[in-house]
């Protein structure tokens, strides 16, 4: 006989007042006001190496790497889909690793090597991964595509580097670029048009060319 798991349902409360209550509702649940004087400047000057080119930036500290690329350097190939790390459209490579550029402050990348979709290839000279996406129709609207391509290149590198994933069966064995491994590793890049099956084929093509 199984012992019971004892629990009691939590009671709910009414929060909202009656009709026509006057409430000031935009602000009160934010953090309280803060003093205006900061401990230092709210802007910074620094350099990034973007697609091999050294670029100096003087921007608001709040500027994300994504907005630095899109708004200041006018490299708009990197996309803003959610600005909160929930979609992957902003994926770029920093010092060889893929990251979400929306959740990274530009000022924290002093001297870093940033590679964007524009740095991978051009319409006249495609990177093999770009060619593979083109060949397999690995996109529709195209908005998540630069992020998918940047991620896909990094995924193949991560597999070569034997970085494990959620679906890796044996953590101590050599990891192969299977369908399951690729799908899991690409899951941080949402494609609402639903080109996933085509993207998988594209990545296999690119992986085959590298092998």
């Amino acid at each position: 006989m199984s012992p019971p798991i004892r629990f009691e349902m939590r009671r709910r409360t009414f929060l909202v007042g009656t009709a026509s209550a006057v409430v000031a509702a935009n602000i009160p649940w934010r953090a309280s006001a803060q003093p205006t004087s900061l401990a230092g400047p709210d802007r910074s000057t620094f350099t990034l190496v973007v697609n091999g080119e050294t670029r100096e930036l003087a921007v608001d500290n709040r500027t994300t790497l994504l907005d630095a690329l899109r708004e200041h350097l006018e490299l708009t190939g990197t996309k803003k889909g959610c600005d909160h790390g929930q979609c992957g459209a902003c994926t770029v490579h920093v010092n060889g690793e893929r990251i979400n550029s929306c959740l990274s402050l530009a000022v924290m990348h002093q001297g870093d090597e940033v590679t964007t979709i524009e740095g991978l290839g051009t319409p006249q000279q495609l990177d093999p991964m770009q060619q593979a996406f083109f060949d397999h129709d690995g996109f529709q609207c195209g908005y998540c595509t630069p992020g998918q391509i940047c991620s896909a290149k990094a995924v193949l590198q991560e597999i070569r580097d034997n970085v494990p994933s959620h679906v890796t069966k044996d953590l101590t064995a050599r990891i192969e670029a299977t369908d399951e491994e690729i799908r899991e590793r690409m899951s941080g890049n949402i494609c609402r048009c639903g080109a996933y099956a085509n993207i998988l084929e594209a990545i296999h093509q690119a992986a085959g060319e590298q092998a």
Partner: peptide, 21 residues
């Protein structure tokens, strides 16, 4: 036929609304 706008999309050079600098 492959998409005629495909090369722009895979290279990040197709311009979307917010990007029209």
């Amino acid at each position: 036929h492959a998409r005629i706008d495909g090369l722009l999309k895979v290279t990040g050079t197709a311009p979307y609304a917010y990007e029209r600098h």
